[in-house]
């Protein structure tokens, strides 16, 4: 009978989402503000930047390299018909800087670091470590959540810059030595069409928003997980799915706002 219950329960489900969103927003604001708490530890922040950022670096570099190479190939085959291969550098750089860099970084980050973050906070909750901190008058928001949120905000833009750079380099390696596009034209066309504030900085702003969004969703899913093994598992799945969809949705909004 579950299928018949679904439709009458639809309204309830949607209504239940509103207070959940409210709690999650409150969690975000308190978590970010906890940086000023005396339980906030800079050492924890560094550890998280290491765990979320540095350890994701290898994945990002490999992914960026292949993305750039594929862009080089596909762009070349599209442009060579019009004899416009001189625009290949611009094509590769703009696609990476504006869209693919921030979005792919955020999606990979959600899979690589977000899932681990949810599982970590979820198991802390399941093993009652968070309650233990409360008992010892240590604010778990300041000790556990704030360093992770801020680490996400710091790490994702840095990962995105590296992604952009490696991607452009991958595109160059395919375009110039393999496909025989003129190297000078490749860089010159890129330079004359890419602007620092309009393209590079807007892309990084996107990455910053995605970093906040992904770590927020991941931390919240862990914090709100059912304190059981199964609950942590499903929270981890939900964290990756929600974060990925949220990144794609927010990307559309940011693109519409930033690149008029």
């Amino acid at each position: 009978m579950a299928a018949f219950d679904f439709i009458p329960n639809l309204g309830n489900r949607i209504l239940a989402m509103v207070p959940r969103l409210g709690t999650a927003s409150r969690f975000l604001v308190l978590g970010l503000a906890a940086i000023f708490s005396r339980h906030f530890s800079f050492r924890q922040l560094l550890r998280q930047v290491y765990g979320l950022g540095v350890l994701s670096l290898a994945l990002m570099i490999v992914a960026a390299f292949f993305t750039g190479m594929v862009l080089g190939f596909q762009g070349y085959y599209a442009l060579v018909r019009f004899g416009a291969t001189s625009a290949l550098g611009t094509l590769v750089a703009l696609s990476l800087l504006r869209e693919l860099g921030p979005v792919l970084t955020a999606l990979l980050f959600a899979g690589r670091a977000g899932s681990a973050l949810t599982a970590e906070i979820g198991s802390m909750k399941a093993t009652e470590q968070l309650s233990a901190m409360d008992m010892m008058a240590v604010n778990p928001l300041a000790w556990v959540v704030a360093p992770r949120l801020w680490a996400g905000i710091i790490a994702v833009p840095i990962l995105c810059v590296i992604f952009d750079l490696v991607g452009v380099w991958g595109g160059y390696l395919i375009a110039v030595p393999v496909l025989g596009v003129d190297g000078g034209t490749f860089w010159a066309q890129m330079q004359s069409n890419v602007t620092f504030t309009g393209d590079i900085m807007n892309g990084l702003f996107k990455a910053l928003c995605f970093g906040l969004l992904v770590t927020w969703i991941a931390a919240w899913q862990g914090y709100a997980a059912q304190p059981t093994a199964e609950g942590v598992g499903s929270a981890t799945t939900r964290s990756v799915v929600t974060a990925s969809l949220a990144v794609l949705g927010l990307d559309f909004i940011l693109t519409a706002l930033l690149f008029k």
Binding site: V161, V194, F196, I200, L204
Partner: peptide, 11 residues
């Protein structure tokens, strides 16, 4: 990476 992007890729 940002400096290289700004000088080599951007104008």
């Amino acid at each position: 990476a940002l400096v290289v992007l700004a000088t080599r890729v951007g104008n």
